[in-house]
């Protein structure tokens, strides 16, 4: 009996080690490209093309970062990206929470139809509406402006869907208590709904920030000057900046590394809510 138990225990330990090794392999596959990015961003141009490959540069070229940064107005792109994404999520915070509250807690004629039309936009993505949206944005005179980048994005169907779910779970008693005190809907939203749905709201806002910061398709189409271009568009200009002989990979990797810093920072600070929020809600930007 005792031998059997030790055997079981041994098996269990082996299983644990085995699982750990597999996960470690996965982790290497995920991390290796990032390691490669950083390592290459510190190489001299010649080390980039060397075969067999150079794992670590002989002497890290930190100046690649400062040089890459001035190849294009990256500070401006970075500002635009952060400004636009932040404005969008602040705007979405208001539109989404007000609408989610109405859809979750109030009854009114046409509610289901209206909610369905919001939901349908989760499938009918911007990509397939782009021609009319482009023409509309240009009719408003918003091409190549912050208006054009921000205003059409100021609400999020998925956000409404998600926050509505959270709002629906809040007990009616709490709402009634506020009503008895003569509180308005805005009081209820402010003092009951929002405080009790913080993880969901943070998840949706963080995801909103990241997906708008990363967005390429829409800003590509509605901007045409460096005053309004965002980071992904800025990076893509390295595509053609290679006439001096080959792709300037060391610059490209350095600029890429800087470009992903804001997403990573936002992610790290919100990871506690975020990964849990995704697991429980399955959010999609």
């Amino acid at each position: 009996m005792k031998i059997y138990q030790t055997h079981r225990l041994f098996q269990k330990e082996i299983g644990k080690v085995f699982r750990f090794v597999i996960i470690l392999l996965f982790a290497i596959l995920v991390a290796l490209p990032f390691f490669w990015m950083i390592s290459s961003s510190l190489k001299k141009p010649l080390e980039i093309f060397e075969v067999p490959i150079v794992w670590l540069p002989a002497k890290p070229q930190w100046s690649n970062y400062t040089e890459a940064w001035v190849q294009a107005p990256f500070s401006k792109y970075m500002f635009n990206s952060i400004f636009v994404s932040t404005s969008i999520i602040i705007g979405q915070f208001f539109t989404v929470i007000l609408a989610a509250y109405a859809f979750a807690r109030l009854t009114f004629p046409g509610k289901n139809l209206l909610f369905l039309s919001v939901l349908s936009l989760m499938m009918v993505r911007l990509e397939v509406r782009i021609i009319p949206v482009y023409l509309m944005v240009s009719n408003f005179g918003w091409i190549d402006s912050y208006y054009g980048l921000i205003i059409p994005m100021l609400t999020s169907p998925f956000g409404i869907f998600l926050v509505r779910q959270a709002f629906m779970q809040i007990p009616q008693d709490l709402l009634d208590a506020v009503k008895i005190d003569g509180g308005s809907h805005l009081t209820i939203i402010r003092h009951v709904m929002i405080p009790l749905s913080v993880p969901t709201i943070i998840t949706f806002m963080v995801f909103g920030f990241i997906s708008h910061y990363n967005s390429y398709f829409y800003p590509l189409i509605v901007t045409h000057s460096d005053r309004f271009r965002t980071i992904p568009i800025g990076l893509s200009r390295f595509k053609m900046a290679s006439e001096t002989g080959g792709v300037p990979w060391h610059y490209l990797m350095a600029a890429s590394a800087i470009a992903l810093i804001p997403s990573v920072i936002v992610f790290l600070f919100s990871q506690k809510y975020f990964v849990r929020g995704v697991a429980s809600t399955g959010i999609k930007g």
Binding site: F94, T95, Y101, A102, S117, L121, R129, P132, M136, T155
Partner: peptide, 19 residues
Amino acid sequence: PYLLILPAMTLVVVFGLIP
């Protein structure tokens, strides 16, 4: 209720359904 959904619905209609 309609006032509350107005901002979101305006955007949904203008940039979503009309297109």
